[in-house]
Amino acid sequence: MSRLAVPKTYKLYIGGKFPRSESGRTYEVAATDGTFLANAAKASRKDARDAVVAARSAQSGWAGATPYNRGQVLYRIAELLEGRRVQFVDEIERSEGVSADAANRQVDEAIDRWVWYAGWADKYAQVAGNANPVSGPYFNLSVPEPTGVVAIVAPQNSSLLGLVSVVAPALVAGNTVVVIASETLPLSAISLSEVLATSDVPGGVVNILTGSPAEITPWLASHADVNAIDLTGAGGLDWVDLEIAAAETLKRVLRPEGGTDSAAPSLDRITALTETKTVWHTKSLI
């Protein structure tokens, strides 16, 4: 017996919930050959605003979790990704038009990368922090702390790997994230939001918007409650203006990266979204 197809209309992921776009807009996601895959929500500036509010309210809790706990929570996401790999492979195959092998390789690499970053959660501070020698009987310690709310434009030419490569490092230090997924390849991002919703990540720590980066990014770049903006996937936008807007509120800016594997895994991606706090403390009085 034949079945009717079930066409999907996906929603956004904001504050641990799945709301429709405030604007009510959707757009069609198509495969490379033009066939219909699904409808995705087309986020508006107000959705971005709501996402920032959610990220802000989740930030202190996420940053306050112990690094060990953050590592565990992030590792759990990798476990869930592994459990749903068939779905991810299928979506990548269909939306990128690549072979099953290539899709499998992308999912493998994304999961491995997530695990790699999860491992850094309770280690990066030892590497990026320092005990500074000073000319007095004091301990002088520099420690990295999360920047706060990070807005991210995900790489536009990659479904899952690009997204993971920019989101995971931002989370390691305790930042919360508002990420604009690839406009043409949003299905993996939507599935990732379903993974996150069923994981231990508190609502609001990751907020995923689908839609037009050209429309939403300027609002995030100028938003005074966003502390850093990662423009990795914004190469196709007028990113110089975005950087200028970001400078108005003293945001940290990561510039666009191109190439086949933009945002390659590195400790720098973690420390770029941290602030160094230096504290003085007296040595014991003997």
Binding site: R49, R56, W219, S222, H223, A224, D225, E248
Partner: peptide, 9 residues
């Protein structure tokens, strides 16, 4: 100002 403000302000 035309852009979103934040609690720091």
């Amino acid at each position: 100002t035309g852009h979103y403000s934040g609690a720091d302000y």
